[in-house]
Design a protein around this nucleic acid. Sequence first.
DNA 1: TGGACTCTTTCGGCCACACTGAGGG
DNA 2: GGCCCTCAGTGTGGCCGAAAGAGTC
Length: 379
Amino acid sequence: MGYNCDYCREARSMVYCRSDEAYLCLSCDRNVHSANALSKRHSRTLVCDRCNTQLAFVRCVDEKVSLCQTCDWEGHNGTNSASSSHCRQTVNSYSGCPSAAELSSLWSFMCDQPSVVDSTCEQEMGLMSIADNKNGQDLPVPTENNNLQNVIQQADLKDSSTFKTSGAKGDGQCIDDRFYDDFNMDEVDLSIEKYEVLFGVGSNDPENLFAQDGIDSLFGTKDTSVAESVCQGGYAAKESSIGNGVQPACSNAASGDSLRSCNTEPPIPCYGNPFSNISFSSLTGESNAGNYQDCEASSTFPRGEPPWCTPAHDSATRSGIRNDAVLRYKEKKKNRKFEKTVRYATRKARADVRKRVKGRFVKAGDAYDYDPMTQTRSC
DNA sequence: TGGACTCTTTCGGCCACACTGAGGG
DNA sequence: GGCCCTCAGTGTGGCCGAAAGAGTC
């Protein structure tokens, strides 16, 4: 189960880029979206762990999976009292080239499980260091009392690469308020190859990456306030707060539904579930397809199918549509050119032999100071 | 911490002229 | 309809200067 990355075809895809209409592993996501300023603006979101088709909408803390609305509804539709009481958190989108620390804050789903700490992961993380602190400053080494989350937060604070949320940050939010000021993911440069070291598993293995004991097991995050605010209020509290246009007190470290205010995010549709009448203020807002025009993105749904389709159905058709989408994506990627292009070779040839004065073309016969043909100067 | 200053990087404008396409005879 | 001519607009590369950004005191 699970699709491979549209780019490398090897690793399992973890995130979906609407602009590129592509499913990417974290490594390729990093490589593709660090290419230029425009690509950095692409908004990406986790993919549903269950259907691997739709964008993840919530994170089920109890099951340790990211779910789209369909899968969320199927798994938590209330027929099973146990599953319906599962604690869930909103999954945020992101842009830029976030570091592992930033992703962990963005998807700090497991802040509510401070008691569950994978000692193995913690030990591995203790061996990690943030090597590319651009300021060249020494970073604190994580110890038993100085977990990696703190280390990364300090590193990010030094880099002034901090998160900004659109919602409230109450209840002793996971991260210092400064952490949210002037967030700019582009400023952060942490090689994606380090994810394997950082998370202790390959980036192509999201099941192990997130489903073991969660990010806090890796980072040692201990923030019970988040857990309580989400679990006690639960999904209903979030629903009501959003419906009232008020952000929940503390959904996760990088809450506010999006780091970029999600103005470029088209509304996530709700089909056939009791939440279909929920208005996600930060997700709807001014969103429209026009927001994607600058990067030729479409507002089509992932995998080229309507979101109301049951993910497990008609896999052959879905695979065909997906292959088409992959081909379109690769073709578009292949043809993408950011460097200067010469449309008329004859004009270029002419310009290449034209004499100049301080770079400017001169009339034939006039004195010149630069002759491209001879690389000499007449005066 | 903010201002002044210096250094580095980025970007648009300039130039002549072959070429292109539209319009008219 | 086809051909020829005129004319306005376009694109080409290297250099320069202004502006912006980064760094230092």
